[in-house]
Amino acid sequence: MKKTILFLSLLSSVYFYSQDFSGINKILEKIEEKGKKIKDASNYELKSKKFVLVEDFEDHAERHVLELNADGTLTLIELIDDKSSGQSFSNIFTGDYIRKKNAVSVNANFLEGKKIAMPLVYNLYIMNAGDIWYLKDINTNKRWIENNNLIKKKK
Rank of each mutant, 00 (worst) to 15 (best):
K47F: 00
W133Q: 06
Y122Q: 09
R63G: 00
I132M: 15
D82K: 05
V65F: 08
G86N: 10
A117Q: 11
K50A: 06
S88H: 09
L53T: 03
G95C: 02
E55H: 06
V52D: 03
E112A: 15
N128W: 04
D131L: 10
L53E: 01
D96N: 15
V65D: 09
D137R: 00
D56G: 05
V54A: 06
I132C: 09
L120N: 06
A103N: 14
E67S: 08
N109Q: 08
K50T: 15
A103Q: 12
N107G: 00
A129M: 07
A61L: 08
S48W: 04
L79R: 10
A129H: 14
I138Q: 09
L120V: 10
W133T: 14
E58Q: 08
D59W: 09
V104I: 15
H64N: 11
M118S: 12
F51L: 00
N69W: 04
I92W: 07
N128H: 11
V121L: 08
T73S: 14
D81Y: 15
D81P: 01
L76I: 03
K100A: 05
G72H: 08
N69A: 03
V106L: 13
N128V: 14
K114I: 12
K115H: 13
K136N: 09
I80K: 07
Q87N: 11
Y134K: 02
D71A: 08
N43M: 06
K114M: 10
S48N: 15
K115N: 12
N107T: 10
K50S: 14
A117C: 00
D71Q: 06
